[in-house]
Design a binder for these strands. Structure first.
Length: 480
RNA sequence: CGGGGCGUGGCUCAGCCUGGUAGAGCGCCUGGUUCGGGACCAGGAGGCCGGAGGUUCGAAUCCUCUCGCCCCGACCA
């Protein structure tokens, strides 16, 4: 028995994660470029599934795709005071082009609110131009000091939605609508349960009135911000002079929103479902759902097995592993590490008996069934897997969410938690939304993840720091 | 930016202290035997030892400079 190339979660969760990403052939560090990664075919295919699922929903809610420039004039960033302050430290700037020093440097986009502001000002004159609903699929660069594959890389892929509305109410509806879209994709497609909520003022997007997020829990108990949706108010409208004339003939600034999810979701997917044997993909996220490993010795056996395999593969849309020079065992490990939901084994014994062996990736259960029942069994198994994986993740979230009623208690629960050691929890506590309180939590390197939109706890209570009455408990956790 | 580690065949690393013909395992190629959970045997290809300079008869090894990567903290989708 060869030693597993994957570090067990128990031993070191962070290393386990790296191992799963690499052994699952999802991505590898770019090495030649600091903090960047190469997304490999197996990883990019997952991104393509996400893109399809999200894009379909964006279109269904009335959005259209656009593409904006990668480079932003430096002065644009400075137009919104909070925005530039928030992003300055992590900008990459182009100062030389065409062999000449540029008069005004270009910033490589960390996000496109400013460019959007500029073009919205050109495109919007009347209330009839509203709402303006656009989305961009793009890459962005944020010069982060600490990177981890998929979770935080210097360059990453994402989508950023940008909308403009004539009223704040309408903009807020949009913010929540898109947050709901994210939650739906996370839960129904990725089988990754999330907590929807409002970010504290200290944690909001630079330049927003308020930010909303979906937070998910990884297997080590750390929180992952899986998606954000921002109520930008009229901040960017004023900064970029995006005005429209109302029905009554009055001029007003537009109310904007922006929302995004990134390749980070792939990291979340991995850390939600995978195990010590490697990647586990929920069926809806798997581009290759079923693989057949044929087993044979002699050429005559090979002929009959391959014939049966071809017929069954066609029936269930399976990929046949025809690679030569690899034993069946090696092939099982190969697909297991890559997270394929169902692996079918087909050998001479099965062909003779009219059977086939079906193996589920998540539970590891193996079953021998008649070939005539295969199509129905595959469909049923994929459905059950999707359901079971979500239920399991949801249970883990519930099991690791605890209530605390004092700052000391919160600290005790979270103090020793690290990405490597795990043991993280979502701690529900009453806390006033005040930057000073966020700072107190930061002292032990935890943070307020969000204030849930739906309070599933005991309603109002006294803030664990100030003692003031607050409406509900917030989620406090260590996070990525 | 502070602390730590590391650059040697595709990968993981040994060799460096004590200078003297560049190694191992895995992977790869060829042939044969295998094949129901990581097969075995035989043969083979592949490296100016991150870069520059210096010391020396001679440098992967010693000295100086330099570039880069990884890990740990402060910042973050």
């Amino acid at each position: 028995m060869a030693e597993s190339p994957i570090t067990p979660r128990e031993k070191d969760f962070a290393t386990w994660y790296q191992d799963v990403v690499i052994q699952g052939d999802m991505a590898e560090p770019a090495e030649i470029v600091k903090g960047c990664m190469v997304i490999k075919p197996n990883g990019y295919a997952v991104w393509e599934v996400l893109q399809r699922e999200l894009d379909t929903r964006f279109k269904a809610t009335g959005h259209q795709n656009v593409y904006l420039p990668l480079l932003i004039p430096e002065s644009f960033l400075k137009k919104e005071a909070e925005h530039v302050e928030g992003f300055s430290p992590e900008l990459a700037v182009v100062t030389v082009a065409g062999g000449k020093k540029l008069e005004e440097p270009y910033v490589i986009r960390p996000t496109s609110e400013t460019i959007v502001g500029h073009f919205f000002a050109k495109w919007i004159q009347s209330h009839r131009d509203l709402p303006m609903l656009i989305n961009q699929w793009a890459n962005v660069i944020r010069w982060e000091l600490r990177t981890r594959m998929f979770l935080r890389t210097t360059e990453f892929l994402w989508q950023e939605g940008h909308t403009a509305h004539s009223t704040h109410e309408e903009a807020l509806e949009e913010v929540i609508r898109m947050l709901d879209v994210y939650a739906e994709v996370a839960e129904d497609v990725m089988a990754m349960p999330v907590v929807k909520g409002v970010k504290t003022r200290a944690e909001k997007f630079a330049g927003a009135l308020r930010s909303y997020s979906i937070e998910s829990m990884m297997q080590n108990g750390l929180a992952l911000q899986a998606g954000t949706s921002h109520d930008l108010g009229q901040n960017f409208g004023k900064a970029f002079d995006v005005q429209f004339q109302s029905k009554e003939g009055k001029l007003d600034y537009v109310w904007q929103t922006s929302w995004g999810v990134s390749t980070r979701l792939i990291g979340g997917l991995i850390m939600t479902h995978s195990d010590d044997k490697g990647l586990v993909l929920p069926p809806k996220m798997a581009h290759r759902k079923v693989v057949i490993v044929p087993i044979f010795r002699k050429d005559d056996e090979k002929a009959i097995v391959m014939e049966a395999a071809a017929k069954l593969a066609k029936e269930v849309g399976a990929h046949i592993d025809t690679r030569e020079g690899h034993s069946p065992g090696a092939k099982f490990f190969h697909w297991e590490r890559r997270g394929v939901p169902i692996v079918l084994e087909l050998g001479p014994r099965d062909v003779a008996a009219g059977n086939i062996v079906i193996k589920r990736r998540d539970s590891g259960t193996k079953e021998i069934i008649p070939q005539t029942e295969l199509a129905a069994k595959v469909a049923e198994t994929l459905e059950a897997m999707q359901r079971d994986m979500f239920a399991k993740a949801k249970q883990r979230l519930a099991d690791n969410t605890v209530v605390a009623n004092s700052l000391g208690e919160v600290r005790e629960i979270l103090d020793d938690v690290t990405a490597e050691k795990g043991g993280g929890k979502f701690v529900m506590a009453h806390l006033k939304d005040d930057p000073a309180n966020d700072a107190a939590i930061k002292e032990f390197r935890a943070s307020v993840r969000n204030i849930p939109l739906v309070d599933e706890y005991d309603g109002p209570g006294k803030c664990i720091i100030t003692g003031e009455e607050v409406a509900q408990r917030v989620v406090i956790a260590k996070s990525y």
